[in-house]
Design a protein around this nucleic acid. Sequence first.
DNA 1: CCCTGATTCGC
DNA 2: GCGAATCAGG
Length: 240
Amino acid sequence: MGWTDERIATLKKMWEGGSTASEIAAELGGVSRNAVIGKAHRLGLKARPSPVKANDKKKPAAPAKKPAVAPAPRVAEPRTEPAERSVTGEAAERPAPRAAAPSPRAEAVADDGLNAVPSQPVPGPPADLPKIVSVGPGGFLRQGPGDQQAPIPPAPPRRLVPAKPSPEIAGKTTLLDLSEKVCRWPMGHPGEADFHFCGVAVNPGFPYCVEHCGRAYQAQLPRGVRRPPPPLPFGGPRVR
DNA sequence: CCCTGATTCGC
DNA sequence: GCGAATCAGG
């Protein structure tokens, strides 16, 4: 991967924008963090808050080396006393280039058209539909254990965009409209464009309106079976 | 350990 | 010119 003008421009922008070398390398792709740093220095744009630059001691001697050259075996060296540790009271005057350290990294990702949420999130095969074992209240489909599919969620979008209400549910009670005051009975099937909720005033103390309470709480007793006192709405008088 | 940038040096 | 290796601080 070579350094095209475009990539160099991205490098410059991100580097001056405060992005780290790793982030720049990831954004560019095909290059390592070291490559980015090396290129940045070669371009002349350096001088950024470095965690290693605070040191200014007299230490220009042999820091980085690895291969080839033998490390100079100092065996028969007439060692003089290691008294070079002159403890100077440095750090007295150090402006400490800890200037403002903004983090505009997240903003470095410019608008590139990839932010729009795709309207086709799941590329599931439309051919073979899952076998429906039963239909639950509101029409949601119960499936057998082996019938589950679409296990892998789509890649998360780079940035979340507020979804615009589709015309199908305009004026309807959506999931976001639910509260303790409106009926939560689902209307239609989840996933459908016009899926919404009942939305009328609830039967006080219940999550559904009176009508849907009648559907949700159906008395189904085996005939002749004596029923304990109904717990609703408040459990009834305490018996002892 | 992880991260960071700086530096060196073989290619 | 390039970048892996290495250093060194947080």
